[in-house]
Simulated scan of single mutants.
Amino acid sequence: MSNRDYDHKNERKVGRFLDEYLYENLDWRTERQTETDIQRQGSDIIASIPGIGSKIHIDEKAQTDYLNNPLPTFALEIDSIQNGTKRKGWLFKPDKNTDYYLFIWMVDVYAFRRKQTRYGEKILIERGDHKQLKIDADALPRDTTSVMWRDEASLRADDDVDNDDLPGPRVEIDASSESIDAFESNIVSIPGRITSGGTVDRRAFEAEHINEIECLLVDRDTLQDYLAAAGFDRTTANDKATELRNRNNYGKTDVNAPDFYFYYTSPRQKNEEPINIVMYRRQLEQLAEETYTVTQNGIQ
């Protein structure tokens, strides 16, 4: 699976979370777009937003590569390589229908992955508070779908813990009391791709594993106007990206701008080798019309 396909799958999971916990709690009328061609035109949601307008096309952009450790920036794609051909990115592509971007930072998520350790293979579960729980993968039957986290006292009293109390198959839990307290009294489904065998390098999650995200609603024209005023409209940004690609100038390139820089990702990091304008979140916050912190308890 390419990085782009992986990102799109994860953004669909984020979309399900947004439908339930953000859009349902706003006085917007929304319609999620499910046809691939419409989504490719930069429209995940069509919304009527009081004070902004009707039939507003919103493109949801989630920072899913950085679960529980969100960056203080956001990458705005200028171009990338698709099937050996350079393609224009979503930031300046003229045929996009996007009116607004919803930029999303993944603050607190149950993130699952399999990892080989010196003691054997483990399933690791992380959260936004940087606490971690480990489960012996060999002790987890293939048909396991959930695990109940034990409370701190039970974990300390190893002799008194009876795994028969756990729902479903028995599992062996290896975790410190500090790691486990965030999971106390919860039951969380484990993604199927984790229990199906094989090592998964990247973190996996489902919509129900998202605990908290932070979002900025930014007008696309406002964003492009800001970049143009700083010297990078569609033409000059594309020219700069072409220069970097022709020189194989991977990594960060400063452009005498206080709030953004260019970044050319090497093929060792991503097959698509995207070139992005990376903008600091503080500037996106200045440009944003709305700011949301969304949890399973609603909007804060």
Results as ranks from 00 to 15, higher is better:
A137P: 00
G168K: 08
I173D: 04
K134L: 01
V147Q: 01
Q132I: 15
D158A: 11
A175P: 00
A175N: 09
D151H: 11
K134F: 04
T144L: 07
A137K: 08
R170M: 05
G168Q: 09
D158W: 12
R170P: 02
S146L: 10
D151L: 05
A139F: 01
W149S: 14
W149Y: 15
R170V: 01
S154F: 05
G168M: 01
D151S: 09
T145C: 12
D160N: 12
V147L: 14
G168E: 03
E172C: 00
L166S: 11
M148E: 14
L140C: 04
T145H: 13
D143A: 06
T144E: 09
H130D: 12
R150I: 02
P167Y: 13
D143C: 06
A175R: 08
V161A: 06
D138V: 09
D165R: 14
K134G: 02
D159T: 06
L155V: 10
D162S: 10
V147T: 02
G168T: 07
A157Y: 08
E172P: 00
V147A: 08
D159W: 05
D143T: 10
A153H: 03
T144R: 01
L133P: 00
D159P: 00
N163S: 00
L166W: 03
D160P: 00
V171D: 02
D158I: 12
D159E: 05
S146W: 10
W149I: 13
I173Q: 05
W149N: 07
P141N: 08
A153S: 08
P141K: 14
D174S: 07
D136E: 11
A157M: 03
E152C: 11
A175K: 01
I173Y: 01
D143W: 03
V161W: 15
A157V: 06
V171S: 03
S146K: 05
P141W: 08
Q132G: 01
L133K: 04
V171N: 04
R150Y: 08
L140M: 11
V161I: 10
A175S: 13
P141A: 12
L166Y: 05
R170S: 09
A153W: 10
H130S: 14
S154M: 10
G168A: 01
K134C: 08
K131H: 15
T144F: 06
W149P: 11
